[in-house]
């Protein structure tokens, strides 16, 4: 589904990504872990075309490095940014409508279905997005991306600042998304949700992938966790 090879990216003269290699297969949940500042968010922004890439990024066999963000999204790659970025002056329903790439075709998800899955959003369908709680905004942001019917989504720190109960809801939604055949690249700093739902995971350090394995194998690697993950 997604194949990233020797990916480099720069912010000015700072060399942030220094040859990142990883892949995500269809229907898989893959986590990209690491401490703050190691380049996790830059990786997804670079894949999405927000940061100029050097190297190869193949999505569904097509080279997408250098394409515009909207072209990448149209190919079926969704992105839920770290800051949630809902449109505060638009209503919940309008936020969801905005996620649809076209009104002509029906995707895997509908607005009514989203409201059934998240009754809180349904009850506040005509309320401006800006007044929702942090958890509701996170759900809205994920649902909005799903309305575009992506084949894969990249989610940056979805549990940041959320209460444990909401984190559980996020985990359930991610598993439901994967069940419907949508691949997920989950970018996380915390291990809890990633270990619970990921099929595979990568650990980043200093702009590179420093470990690849499964949740079980990572739990057996105390040295890796101590060096690259624990604070």
């Amino acid at each position: 589904m997604l194949e990233v090879s020797n990916l480099h990216a720069y912010y000015g003269k700072s060399h942030i990504l220094q040859g990142v290699n990883f892949n995500v297969q269809k229907g898989e949940i893959v986590s990209l872990l690491g401490r703050n500042g190691v380049g996790r968010s830059t990786t997804v922004k670079t894949i999405m075309g927000e940061v100029a890439p050097q190297g190869s990024i193949k999505f569904k066999g097509l080279e997408i490095a250098g394409k515009e963000s909207f072209e990448i999204a149209h190919l079926g790659l969704g992105y839920v940014p770290e800051n949630r970025d809902i449109f505060p002056s638009l209503t919940v329903r309008q936020n969801l409508i905005l996620g649809m790439k076209s009104t002509q075709t029906q995707g895997r998800w509908t607005i009514d279905e989203m409201f059934r899955m998240f009754p809180n959003l349904g009850e506040r369908a005509d309320v401006e997005g800006g007044v929702l709680s942090g958890g509701e905004q996170q759900m809205l942001c994920m649902c909005r991306t799903l309305m575009g019917d992506p084949d894969m989504i990249m989610i940056d720190e979805p549990t940041e600042g959320l209460a444990p109960k909401i984190v559980e809801q996020v985990a359930n939604l991610l598993q439901e998304i994967a069940r419907r055949g949508v691949a997920i690249l989950l970018v996380e700093q915390k291990l809890s949700i990633a270990l619970k739902i990921s099929h595979r995971l990568y650990v980043m350090g200093h702009g590179k992938i420093v470990y690849e394995g499964t949740a079980d194998s990572l739990m057996g690697e105390d040295a890796v966790r101590a060096e690259w993950l624990e604070v």
Binding site: F70, A73, F87, S89, L98, K101
Partner: peptide, 25 residues
């Protein structure tokens, strides 16, 4: 209209709108 909603959103959050598949330019 849907296009109006997209324009309103693109005014304040152009990158996010582009990430949703809308041709902001």
């Amino acid at each position: 209209s849907r296009i109006g909603i997209i324009i309103q959103a693109a005014i304040t959050h152009p990158n996010t709108v582009a990430n949703l598949g809308h041709n902001v330019p």
